[in-house]
């Protein structure tokens, strides 16, 4: 039987019996709703946050799920869609303001970047070019830490270096990335000027 068809709702009230069922369901649904957020232009970090929120909402409200009305996947995706709609509506009015990337990059140390800055194409191109300009070990450590969400000990094992060396490498890589971005931004703007 397809796990999506299993009557997960009826066993929701008990905590122990359906843990494996939930694990299977979440393994399937989490990539689905994360992809939905990213395809709608939400930047990956926020997509992770919204995914987390949707999954917690679903799990917290699981007694409200009625299996007779549809599959559990569709129910969780519906919750995610509501969260997406809330997010889009929240920023509806602010989209008209063009983010000033140079100003945001210059203040990278002290102010949290706004979502709008992270979601413009220019920032995406800029970060990819800056990443490609980094040294190999710097790029690799950033990739492992932030794209694969590995912990420092895991990275240390993989790169066969000490935890302390990973911390040090990460620190240098972050500084290099920031500096590269600030250097590249005016050049990129010049290139993209029609």
């Amino acid at each position: 039987m397809d796990p999506a068809q299993q009557p997960i709702g009826s066993s929701m009230a008990s905590s122990g019996g359906d843990t494996e069922l939930w694990r299977t369901t979440l393994s399937r649904v989490i990539p689905m709703i994360y992809g939905m957020f990213v395809r709608r232009g939400i930047h990956p970090s926020l997509a992770e946050e919204l995914t987390q929120k949707s999954v917690f909402d679903a799990y917290r409200g699981r007694t409200e799920f009625d299996p007779s009305r549809g599959q559990v996947d569709a129910w969780i995706v519906g919750i995610a869609r509501n969260n997406l709609a809330l997010e889009m509506r929240k920023r509806k009015n602010s989209q008209a303001m063009q983010p000033d990337l140079m100003r945001h990059l210059a203040a990278l140390d002290t102010a949290v970047l706004p979502d709008e800055a992270l979601e413009c194409d220019e920032m995406r191109i800029l970060i990819r070019r800056a990443m490609s300009d980094l040294q190999d070990n710097e790029r690799q450590v950033l990739h492992l830490r932030y794209l694969e969400d590995r912990t420092v000990p895991e990275i240390a094992r993989q790169l066969k270096i000490t935890d302390k060396a990973v911390h040090s490498l990460l620190y240098r890589a972050k500084i290099s990335l920031r500096d590269k971005q600030i250097q590249l931004q005016p050049l990129l703007r010049e290139e993209r000027r029609p």
């Binding site: 939930w22 694990r23 979440l26 393994s27 989490i30 990539p31 994360y34 992809g35 990213v38 395809r39 930047h43 990956p44 970090s45 997509a47 992770e48 995914t51 987390q52 999954v55 990278l108 140390d109 002290t110 102010a111 949290v112 970047l113 992270l118 920032m123 995406r124 970060i127 990819r128 990443m131 950033l142 990739h143 830490r145 932030y146 794209l147 694969e148 969400d149 590995r150 972050k174 990335l177 920031r178 971005q181």
Partner: peptide, 30 residues
Amino acid sequence: NEPFDSNISRLVKLAGDSERPSEAFTEKLI
């Protein structure tokens, strides 16, 4: 420096072009 660390983390994630979350994220969330 928390804003800086947070910004770098969010920026590096932009460099990935996958529409799938990392396995570590999925496992951690579950």
